[in-house]
Simulated scan of single mutants.
Amino acid sequence: MNSPLRLEKVTPHTVDAACAMKVTDGQEHLVAPVVRSLADAYVHGDAAWPRLVFRGRELVGFVMASFSPDSPVDAFRCGIWRLNIADGAQGSGCGRFAVEAVCEEARRRGQDRITVLWLPGDDGPEGFYRRLGFRPVGALQGQVVGELRL
């Protein structure tokens, strides 16, 4: 039986494993590595919400959301900045869990929608996000903006 999934903050004890986590070969161009996301989180301070996804003791993913209701860019007010699911853990519900956890946090903060950006293309994550209920609502920086009403 699989252990339940949970989110944890990045700590001094987990940062090395987080930075070493790799997505499936061929997906590297679709999402920044975790180390870059952690640097972005540092720079953006309280607006960034980085979390690790664990299944039992196994690190299976990383998600970083943004909660910045005053952002001048609508797509960055409440949404998913990054979602990295480890090679070997994709297709097992870890990504869905991470997105649902961001939705839960957004609701807790009084938000009624979240956004995500993805690169268009056959090898991209559009199908995953659309299956979760996101719908394309525009484009930004060469990426599709998807929206999910909560």
Score class of each variant (00 low, 15 high):
Tyr42Leu: 12
Asp122Thr: 07
Ser66Leu: 11
Gln27Tyr: 09
Val99Met: 02
Val73Met: 06
Val60Pro: 01
Asp123Thr: 11
Pro69Asp: 11
Val34Leu: 09
Asp70Glu: 14
Arg131Pro: 01
Pro125Tyr: 03
His29Leu: 09
Arg77Phe: 06
Glu100Gly: 00
Asp40Ala: 08
Ser37Lys: 07
Cys103Val: 15
Ser68Asp: 13
Ala106Trp: 01
Tyr42Asp: 15
Asp87Tyr: 04
Gly110Pro: 11
Val35Trp: 09
Pro50Glu: 04
Leu117Trp: 11
Asp46Phe: 05
Pro120Phe: 06
Trp49Ile: 10
Phe134Tyr: 06
Phe76Ala: 11
Arg131Ile: 01
Gly121Tyr: 02
Ala101Ser: 15
Cys103Lys: 07
Asn84Gly: 06
Ala106Leu: 03
Leu30Asn: 04
Ala47Asp: 15
Phe76Met: 13
Gly124Asn: 02
Gly133Tyr: 10
Tyr42Arg: 13
Asp25Ser: 12
Gly124Thr: 00
Phe54Arg: 07
Gly127Ser: 12
Asp112Trp: 12
Cys103Ser: 08
Leu132Asp: 03
Leu83Asn: 03
Ile80Glu: 01
Gln111Tyr: 10
Ser68Phe: 13
Gly61Glu: 07
Gly56Tyr: 00
Gly88Pro: 09
Ala139Tyr: 10
Arg51Thr: 04
Val99Leu: 04
Thr24Gln: 07
Ile80Ala: 00
Lys22Trp: 10
Ala75Tyr: 12
Arg130His: 07
Leu52Tyr: 01
Ala86Asn: 03
Leu52Gln: 00
Arg135Pro: 00
Arg130Ile: 10
Ser71Leu: 06
Leu83His: 02
Phe128Asn: 05
Gly88Ile: 07
Asn84Tyr: 06
Asp74Lys: 14
Val102Arg: 02
Gly88Met: 08
Arg130Val: 14
Val31Ile: 14
Phe134Cys: 02
Glu58Val: 12
Gly79Ala: 10
Arg51Cys: 08
Phe128Pro: 04
Ala48Lys: 05
Val116His: 02
Ala101Gly: 08
